[in-house]
Design a protein around this nucleic acid. Structure first.
Lengths: 307, 307
DNA sequence: CTGTTAGCGCATTCAC
DNA sequence: GTGAATGCGCTAACAG
């Protein structure tokens, strides 16, 4: 019988099965873009769901509210069994509708609370503090933060952490916030700006909202003969796989993207099986990774050495 | 009316629509893995299909025949409208069944011919020649090729090109083929082997089947104090986005992965609309990208300078 | 132009 | 145990 099915080339019609059964074995994954951090999350989700026989519908919002809404509507129409979403900041409406529809949604990269939803996030405020303390501890007093404070919530959190760390130290520290999209190209442009400043007026340390920005900044700086870390310390955020391989191995703050993906997928699978989740909201702690792109401020020696 | 639909929260049931209409608006994308080159292809496919309102089901075979078959079966069950597949080398059967089923399939990264299928590939034999000529032109006479000759067909093509270029020069060139999986980790291991050889017996130039391998080789070499390119020239293949950002910017051969993705998706869209394709088989030409990881062989000066 | 109906392929139910 | 009937939600065809 099984043999006959195979020989005759019969293939089950999933749409019909789905319609009849009332449930599907497809889950949706909505990313913000295809950058390395999100690709790692996708890998984690993919590995976990594939092992469970689930199919994954992947979409990316390109950080655009309209495209996000469209993707969510398409997912709804597909009647996905569940959804893993890295939300764009202005979202909310479409997600509420879906959750109201009763299908489980795991929010990734945005801290949630309450006993309704499911989420996987990273404590980026602490991450920002970690980064800033490292830089401040190195003696830097004029720091730049590169990143789009206006757009991405997790980047805002990092900046909040930086400000918190600065506030704690007392207050003779200057922080310039340089808005930029979260791409290597935007990093390059910011690097150009930095390079164009007179050396005396330049920040001595640059922190970026994401590693991708640091990649661009680094490239522009080196191209203009500005040495990293001797002339400027540079620090990223994310620890994407290539951070350690850059021309100057990047000091950064690690976020466990792959694990975020597997965790989100596991939470979703649990929810799909109807079980109560162990924890509704997982928050990963970021970790400082010191490599070679940061160094002590050259003209301001360590406290207690020189007068 | 439209308003009423929106207010009442009505969402079309895609599975029912699909079942009734007999066709779906979902296409499948089957990758070999989530490495940067394939992610770029996915980006291209995603951008193109999203603009057309198509949903993309993404899966990866992890270069495993069984997983490939499973993915293809799942795609069949979903009755995807079309398929874009980067095939694992031992595949064929499952694809034939699907094509026999009449749904259009675009094969990516494998040269196809004939007036039946659709394909997007790169002339990797020429790419291999390009790479080898560059290395040979630099005066290297003992070369290593790192890559899994046994597994991936495109990598075999590159090696074929290398051998061709070597044959053309006459014959005092030694080529060591070092098998390795196509990962940075495998590259690291190969780099360790290279570092362990006595300097005199070491190849003076290393070509890798993919950039990811070169990343690992470079890391291991530098860690053992072997300078690139002064002690060993290193050359990759692919030109992944990070190749230029490595600690030593990588000389490599560029393949236009993103464009391969958009092209494959456009061919699929054309086929779905029932039109005859302009060309069934697109072959991109690779391009040599010389950066800083390759240099002249130190002990063998350029012809015509010293005796 | 609006309203009704039939049937896509499956899984579940009920009859045998 | 095997076999036929039903209906999931849509859309195309048809009737009014």
């Amino acid at each position: 019988m099984e043999d006959a099915i195979r020989t005759l080339g019969f293939v089950r019609h999933e749409a019909a099965r789905h319609l009849r059964a009332g449930y599907s074995s497809t889950v949706g994954l909505l990313l913000l873009d295809w950058s390395p951090a999100f690709t790692d999350i996708a890998r984690g989700v993919d590995d976990t769901t594939a092992a469970r026989g689930l199919t994954v519908l992947i979409s990316n919002s390109t950080r655009d509210t309209t495209r996000e809404e469209t993707s969510l509507r398409l997912f709804s129409e597909q009647r996905v069994a569940g959804l893993i979403v890295v939300p764009h900041d202005t979202s909310g409406e479409g997600l509420h509708r879906i959750r109201a529809g009763g299908i489980p949604v795991v929010i990734v990269d945005r801290a949630e609370t309450g006993d309704q939803g499911l989420s996987v996030a990273v404590d980026d405020i602490t991450g920002g503090e970690l980064a800033a303390r490292h830089i401040i501890g190195l003696g830097h007093r004029h720091i730049a933060f590169v990143g789009d404070e206006a757009a991405a919530l997790p980047v805002q959190d990092r900046l909040t952490g930086v400000l918190k760390a600065i506030a704690e130290t007392g207050g003779d520290i200057r922080l310039d916030v340089l808005p930029a999209d979260l791409t290597a190209e935007a990093g390059r442009e910011t690097g150009e700006q930095l390079a164009a400043m007179p050396p005396g007026k330049r920040p001595t340390a640059v922190m970026t909202g994401v590693d991708l920005l640091a990649v661009g900044v680094l490239q522009a700086l080196l191209q203009h003969g500005i040495r990293v870390p001797q002339d400027i310390s540079l620090m990223g955020y994310d620890d994407i796989p290539f951070a350690r391989q850059l021309s100057v191995p990047l000091t950064t703050v690690r976020r466990p993207h792959y694990d975020m993906g597997t965790t989100a997928a596991e939470m979703l699978v649990t929810a799909l099986s109807g079980q109560a989740p162990q924890t509704r909201h997982v928050v990963f702690q970021p970790e400082l990774v010191v490599r070679e792109s940061t160094a002590e401020h050259p003209t301001r020696p360590r406290r207690g050495r020189n007068p």
